[in-house]
């Protein structure tokens, strides 16, 4: 079973086509990486899968565990187990991280069922410890005044709490120093299992030293142009992206 299947996907923003005939399968339990130059459509792909209203899918399909998710509201896709770690996480002034994650978990429960607060905090604190996040963090407003590293850690914390079946990390390594990168990667690796499929979008091969992918895909001009084993990332690093398009 594929966690995520993308079939002949065409998508545009306004009149401008960005994704053109993109095909990709991520089997359950695998971690794939997408690499590519700026403007190759990597982040668009992430937003289209998440259901961002600015993008229009003109043809093709996106299947989550065999079920087409196109046409579903973003929150429905999320509740089906899709998680996107944002490249630029949004600030939500006045809403604490603890309350935000709690609201997100609560939204997944059937009507009338309440999240057990004690269990919730126990789990939250345990995961924060894993990511080296101090307790005081929970009282801060989501992403407000966070450093780049704090934002990314906060994304991974949310991912660990929401336990997705399919996770997409959009340039999670950008703006991270090597220590923060290691912490974030350890969080991702802790989540790796036969149950989850992951897609890691990155510009640099550096992240892939810590999150070792099963497959690497290279994206250019809105489609996958090359796929290979993990050593493909190293080749790219050595030869540059022009080597692919050449």
């Amino acid at each position: 079973m594929n966690t995520l299947s993308i079939r002949h996907l065409y998508a545009s923003i306004g009149e401008k086509p960005i994704l053109e005939d993109l095909n990709l399968d991520i089997p359950q339990g695998e971690v794939h990486a997408i690499m590519g130059k700026n403007g190759s459509g990597k982040s668009t792909l992430a937003k289209v899968i998440a259901g961002h209203p600015d993008y229009t899918v003109t043809s093709g399909d996106v299947l989550l565990h065999g079920e087409s998710i196109l046409g579903m509201d973003p929150q429905v896709r999320a509740r089906l187990g899709f998680f996107l770690a944002f490249q630029y996480p949004m600030e939500i002034p006045g809403v604490t991280i603890a309350n935000f994650i709690r609201a997100a978990l609560q939204a997944r429960l059937p009507e009338g069922e309440e999240l057990e607060a004690t269990d919730y905090y126990a789990e939250l604190y345990a995961k924060m410890d894993t990511l080296g996040i101090p307790r005081s963090f929970t009282a801060r407003s989501v992403n407000v005044g966070f450093s780049g590293g704090e934002k990314k850690r906060c994304e991974i914390l949310q991912m660990m709490m929401l336990k997705p079946r399919c996770a997409l990390l959009d340039e999670t390594d950008s703006g991270l120093d090597i220590d923060a990168l290691k912490v974030v990667a350890s969080g991702v690796n802790a989540l790796r299992s036969s149950e989850i499929g992951m897609l890691v979008i990155t510009h640099y091969q550096r992240l892939l030293d810590y999150i070792v992918p099963d497959r690497v895909h290279v994206m250019a001009a809105g489609k996958i142009v090359l796929s290979g084993e993990k050593d493909l990332a190293l080749k790219l690093e050595a030869k540059g992206y022009d080597w692919v398009s050449a």
Binding site: A50, G51, H52, P53, D73, P74, Q75, R77, A78, R79, F83, L84, F86, P89, M90, I92, F100, I101, A103, A104, L105, A107, R108, Q158, L162
Partner: peptide, 8 residues
């Protein structure tokens, strides 16, 4: 959108 992506 960010909050909807989290399931809200």
């Amino acid at each position: 959108f960010y909050m909807q992506q989290r399931g809200l």
